[in-house]
Structure formats: C-alpha cells, structure tokens
C-alpha cells in the first residue's frame, strides 16, 4: 500500500497496462512532452516512445475516430480529450460508430476515452461541465466515474482490458487528491457500487467528485444524529442497481447527488430505476441534489453557489428527514 494522488494513480495504471500489453497506445492533445493538460501522461513518452504515445493535432473528432479504426485493427487505444467540454467535437465517432460496432457488426471496440470533467476550479462555462448523462443515453458505451485514486487506477485497468468502448470520466478536483493504493493496482470490476459509509436513515448515492461531498455531508449529519449511508456508484454503465436497491430497502430514503445539471441528468435515470424496483420501501420521494439549469459560471462565488457541495447536501437531508420522518 502506498499513498498516491489520482494523477499518479492514473499514470501508474497506464504505465502498467502499456508494459503488460504492447497493443495499448495513447492518443491526445499535448500528451507527449507536455504530459497532458493535467500531467496524467507525464513521462510516458520517454518510456514508450512517440509510436505509442501519439501527440495529435487539435482534431477531437478525427483522432477519436482514428482510435476506433486502430481498435478495429487490433490495438487498444486510450484517448485523452483534454476537457470533457470538448467531447462535443467527438460525439459522432463515439455515438454513431464505437457504440454500435458490437450490436451491428459484432466487432469488438477496445477503446477508452479518458476525459477531465467538472467544475470547482473557476474555468468557466466551457471548461467545467459534466456530460456523462449524455452518454448514459447511448446504448453500447460503458461509463466509469471513479472517486478515489485506487478506483481511478483499478477501473482504468479494467477499462483498458475490456472489449467494450469506455467513457472514463476523471474529475479535475480529484486529480490532486491523495489516497491509499495497493502496490499491484488491482483492477476494479465495472457495475459494482462501493459502500463508502454505512448508515440506516438515508442513502446518499453519488459518483465522481460528489462522493467526497456526500461523505463530508454524512459526517456532519452523523454529528446531528442522522446516519446517512454513502454509496459510490463507481460506474454508471453498467449500473449496480442491486446494491442501490438493497441500500434503499434498509434506509427507506434516497438522495442522489449529481454535479451535472438537473434536467435529463443521470440522477433522473437512477431515481427512476430505483423507484421502479423498490417503490414500496420508500418513505419519501427520491431527492436530487444537482447543479441548477445554468451554464457553469466562472466567478468563484457563483460557481460555489451553483455546484452541489456538502453544506447543500446537509441542508437538503435535514429538510427530507423533517418532512418525511
């Protein structure tokens, strides 16, 4: 066991997979000498050379498409989209090609698209968004949303080894966060939620950075006598509905925390599925804590007010417990 930042854990996972399998290549903007906008690929060019660490022009649509072509030709490409906001430019190859190859052509597409998401760093409306909910709507893509360095490394290793195309969401606020990671970086299976904290009064379901906010909220709620269970979904596709339902059967209340905006968000889908499966166990309507229907503002003061945080979760949890006790 050692302590690593998320950036270090991701880099170690890439390093191990590239050592283990010569078919693994990296493509993306400024991932070579510069090491990627957030330093995840730093040093990998020296280690593996420009044939496997491919620094691309600013052409998200086509280097993502090229990665799919390389995957069809037998490689296992890992693409970096510098900010998730730019994934709009790569939608076509992901949605209309990668996601459909298995269903239509029965062909494997071992592709990973890594991308930094989320706000909290004052980057403004086009460098702060969370778009995982869009991809939730596309059959054929797996979606990883890790919240710790160990899960980031473990899920990335699984993502690289699967035959399915994977959207791998890395929250920017997690990059510098430290955590314990086993020396051998064990792969983490998809579709297996993690109970972060046990509780009996309320389930807080979250993913990515929002797990940290939910954890902090649970601590504060515990001081006030409310025991919240915190569930880290870890992957949205596949979704671990069983563990969610099992938790709700015990706590009878569910609050889903999502950093993305409310309408059409992933939380809405999670809420619907839980409602469909364990409605009779619920003592309260399923609640969502999300960013309101606005572009993410740049001003730190506005951004703090917009994106869900532990104080808001605590406030909403109190309200829920008061109204549906």
């Amino acid at each position: 066991m050692k302590t690593l930042t998320t950036v270090e854990a991701l880099r170690a996972a890439l390093w191990h997979e590239m050592r283990r399998d010569r078919r693994v290549i990296l493509l993306g903007e400024d991932i070579g000498v510069y090491g990627g906008a957030f330093g995840v690929t730093r040093g990998l060019l020296d280690e593996f050379g420009p044939e496997r660490v491919i620094n691309t022009p600013i052409s998200e649509m086509s280097f993502t498409g090229a990665a799919i072509g390389a995957a069809l030709a037998g490689l296992r490409p890992v693409v970096e989209i510098m900010f998730m906001d730019f994934i709009t430019l790569a939608m076509d190859p992901l949605v209309n090609w990668a996601a459909k190859l298995r269903y239509v052509y029965d062909r494997a597409c071992p592709l990973v698209v890594r991308t930094p998401a989320g706000g909290g760093r004052g980057y403004g409306p086009t460098h702060s968004q969370c778009f995982e909910s869009w991809f939730f709507h596309v059959p054929g893509l797996w979606i990883a949303v890790p919240s710790t360095p160990a899960d980031a490394a473990g899920l990335l290793r699984t993502a690289i080894r699967t035959e399915n195309p994977v959207l791998f969401v890395e929250h920017k606020r997690l990059y510098g966060r430290k955590g314990g990671v086993s020396d051998r970086l064990p792969p983490v299976p998809f579709g297996s939620a993690r109970i972060v904290r046990k509780g009996k009064d309320l389930t807080l379901a979250a993913w990515s950075w929002m797990v940290a906010e939910a954890e902090e909220a649970a601590q504060r709620l515990a001081e006030e006598g409310i025991e919240a269970e915190v569930l880290d979904l870890r992957t949205l596709v596949p979704l671990d509905l069983e563990r969610l339902a099992e938790s709700v059967r015990r706590t009878h209340r569910l609050m889903i925390v999502e950093e993305g905006v409310r309408s059409g968000g992933a939380a809405a889908e999670v809420a619907a599925r839980v409602g469909e499966s364990v409605f009779e166990y619920l003592d309260a309507p399923i609640q969502r804590v999300t960013t309101p229907e606005i572009p993410i503002p740049a001003s730190p003061s506005l951004e703090r007010a917009a994106i869900p945080n532990s104080e808001r979760i605590v406030r909403e949890a109190f309200r829920l417990m008061r109204e549906f006790s």
Binding site: R52, M61, I68, G69, A73, L75
Partner: peptide, 25 residues
C-alpha cells in the same frame, strides 16, 4: 470490408486509425 457508414464522412478517420495501426505493427 470494414463497413459502410450512414454518417457522411464517418469512415475517413476510421481508415486513418487503421492505417496508423498497420504502420505501428
């Protein structure tokens, strides 16, 4: 024959990636 494509121009980057892999190997 790796596929026809309902998206105009959609095959272009796929061919580039295939060629990238051929050269690498």
């Amino acid at each position: 024959f790796w596929g026809s494509n309902g998206i105009t121009g959609g095959g272009l980057p796929i061919a580039v990636g295939a060629a990238l892999a051929f050269r690498l190997r």
